[in-house]
């Protein structure tokens, strides 16, 4: 893993009236990471992503590719591209007009590459954006950002409101490009289960604070989920699981820093899915923040 830091956020806060959207958070993102921001509504994910894009003013020190996003927004956006909302492409334009515009204003945009990506979809160049389905608009938007030779890609709920087929297409297209281009990606979504296979790192957020941040590799080593055999339930409980729940009538226990061999003697052991780990940590910390 390349350790060149591309996003450095120290003590970042954003206050609206009396409540904090971001409360003194620290995040470092290195080149090549695919970092997932995971949290409920109001966790501060979008606020953080918008501040990285220079769309929001925050307190604290924030550097993206060595630049201050607020002061050097348009310079930064040559190297950072984003999908921060679905269906925000101008509806009056045709696809061809949009591509020509992108070619004119974005120095990193590769028109031929974009046309090549679009040729794998049902989107026609002469179509007006307003006649495209919601899924096709997202496909078009993704094709635009994929055709930009950017160092960082920011995706804020990029598949919100899309059906399963389009969501699958979106992420498979994203993965394909990622492995070709070695981009750094920051992504926030509610559909955690759909991106966890893509992520290299995860940041759990709640109420403007970071609850946990780690690499997926480290999470898989650190946390283990045990489905104990019927006669081993008490033995498993005696090992003090950090969280336990019932799933289809079967006990499921989550352990932190526990010897895998020891757990395997008690039942089925596997790394937890990110969504379950998030829920467990949220319940354990009762919504409070810890780094």
């Amino acid at each position: 893993m390349n350790t060149e830091v591309v996003i450095k956020a120290n003590n970042i806060s954003k206050k609206y009236d009396e409540s904090y959207a971001l409360d003194s958070i620290d995040i470092e993102v290195s080149k090549g990471q695919i970092m997932g921001l995971i949290g409920p509504n109001g966790a501060g994910k979008s606020t953080f992503l918008q501040s990285v894009l220079g769309l929001l003013k925050t307190e604290g020190n924030l550097e993206v590719l060595g630049l201050d996003p607020r002061k050097d927004r348009h310079k930064l956006l040559k190297e950072v591209c984003s999908i921060t909302d679905v269906a925000v492409l101008p509806k009056w334009m045709t696809v061809q007009q949009l591509l020509s515009y992108m070619d004119g204003v974005h120095p990193g945009f590769d028109l031929d590459k974009c046309i090549s990506i679009l040729s794998r979809t049902n989107i026609k160049l002469h179509s007006k954006i307003k006649v495209l389905s919601r899924g096709m608009v997202v496909q078009l938007h993704l094709s635009l950002v994929m055709a930009i030779d950017a160092k960082i890609l920011i995706l804020d709920e990029p598949t919100l409101g899309l059906d399963l087929v389009y969501r699958k297409d979106f992420y498979s297209q994203l993965i394909e490009d990622y492995y070709e281009g070695n981009k750094t990606i920051l992504i926030s979504t509610h559909q955690v289960e759909e991106i966890e296979g893509v992520l290299s790192d995860a940041v759990f957020m709640n109420q403007g604070r970071i609850v946990m941040q780690d690499s997926i590799e480290s999470i898989n080593k650190k946390y283990l989920e045990l489905r104990p055999d019927q006669n081993s339930i008490n033995a498993a409980k005696s090992l003090n699981p950090m969280h336990h729940r019932t799933e289809l009538g079967r006990e499921v226990m989550l352990f932190e820093d526990m010897d895998k061999d020891k757990l395997m003697e008690l039942g089925d052991v596997r790394p937890p899915v990110i969504a379950d780990l998030f829920m467990a940590i949220m319940e354990t910390t009762k919504g409070g923040g810890q780094s």
Partner: peptide, 17 residues
Amino acid sequence: DERKDRSLIFWRSLPVS
């Protein structure tokens, strides 16, 4: 219009001041 159809979000995601 760019606020009404929310394309403002897209235009401001491009490197144009």
